[in-house]
Simulated assay, not measured.
Amino acid sequence: MDQLLLVLVNGVASGAIYGLMGLGLVIIYRATDVVNFALASLATIGLYVAITFHDSGVAVVVGVLGAVAVTVVAGLVVREVVIRPLGQGQLFAALVVTMGVALIAESVVSSVWGTQPKSFPSLVEGTVGIGDAAIPAQSLLTIVVAGIAMALVAFLFGRTSHGSAMRAVAESADTATVVGINVQRIARMAWALGLGLAALAACLYAPKAGLAPTVLAAPLFRAFAGIFLGGLNSMYGAVIGGLIVGVLENIGATYVSASFRDTFVFSFTILVLLIRPQGLFGTRTFQRV
């Protein structure tokens, strides 16, 4: 029972990271119709900036804030320089461009900081005893921080005028323009928010995984599994899907085999999509042809 509790807590912590990253992907996709494959690579640049700050004697929390800021700025530059000129409705072109940006970002990281793995400091040390189980304090902090971030996003979209404008743009950019909403400003806000969430998720993930130019490749694909499982157009689905993926992979790694954790997760995701193609919380869309 103690082992199961440890597996579940670590699974929820991992799922919270995937949920945050997936939430960032969905926010950007709904506001701008861009599936941002560069999101993880841009967040990796933020991670290396954070470790550079830390190595200079700056507190870890300040480094995390620096990582979020650098990731957001880099992402906004990418949007204005290479995504916005593509125009609306260029889903495939934008997808290819963000893949190219991801490769460029990884090359920049390798050139500036090298390819040797590095460690990333934990935000908190030690364990917390629950019964006979010793739960890593970092896992509990990850759950709390991710939960607060998700609650703030829910408040933004549910209770503020900016959130209402972002939801309006997500429903129809043309209609939002007619009623006087600045679609480009809302798009920039969505990119900033999505990239900030990704950078926060990266800083929560790095203490466990360490640093490397492609360290966020695995959580990015698990975040994608989560948003397809929950529904590509559902923010709540992205969070819940990420949590399901995190718990499933930890259960599979512990009770089946660590080498089959991704097989376990993606097999379950494929099974769900075969039954419900729009995901658990997504809505089916229809297009006249």
Rank of each mutant, 00 (worst) to 15 (best):
G24I: 09
V35H: 07
D33Y: 12
I27G: 01
G66E: 08
T44R: 00
L39P: 04
Y48Q: 12
F53S: 08
I51T: 03
V34K: 10
G63C: 00
S41M: 01
D55Y: 09
I27V: 15
G57I: 07
N36T: 00
T32M: 07
V58S: 03
V35D: 10
G46C: 08
F37L: 04
I27D: 00
V62S: 13
V61P: 06
H54P: 11
N36K: 01
I28Q: 05
G46R: 02
G63I: 04
L25C: 09
V64C: 09
S41Y: 07
I45Q: 06
N36D: 03
L65Q: 08
D33V: 13
S41F: 04
T32N: 10
V58W: 02
L25P: 03
I51K: 02
A69K: 05
A59N: 15
V61C: 06
V26H: 05
H54K: 13
V62Y: 14
L39D: 03
G57V: 05
S56D: 04
N36E: 01
A69I: 09
A31F: 06
N36V: 00
V49F: 11
V68H: 12
T52W: 09
V58C: 04
H54Y: 12
A67Y: 09
A31T: 02
V26Y: 09
Y48A: 06
V49H: 02
A69M: 07
D55G: 15
A38P: 03
Y48G: 04
A67C: 12
Y48S: 04
V64Q: 10
T52D: 13
V64H: 10
F37Y: 03
L39C: 00
I27K: 11
V58G: 06
A40T: 05
Y48E: 10
A43L: 02
F53Y: 13
G24H: 07
S56E: 13
V34S: 10
V26T: 14
G66S: 10
A50F: 00
V62P: 02
G46F: 02
F53M: 13
H54E: 14
H54V: 14
V35W: 11
T52S: 12
A69H: 09
A31I: 05
I28E: 06
V62F: 09
Y48P: 05
V35I: 08
L42G: 11
V58E: 01
G46H: 09
V34R: 14
L47K: 00
G63L: 05
G57W: 03
T32K: 07
L42F: 14
V26M: 08
G66W: 15
D33Q: 15
A40I: 02
T44L: 01
I28G: 06
A40P: 03
I51P: 04
A40R: 11
G46K: 00
H54C: 13
S56Q: 12
T52I: 01
T52V: 07
A40E: 06
T52N: 11
H54M: 14
V60I: 14
A50S: 04
L39G: 04
A31P: 08
V49G: 07
N36M: 02
A38G: 03
R30E: 07
V34L: 15
F53E: 01
V61Y: 06
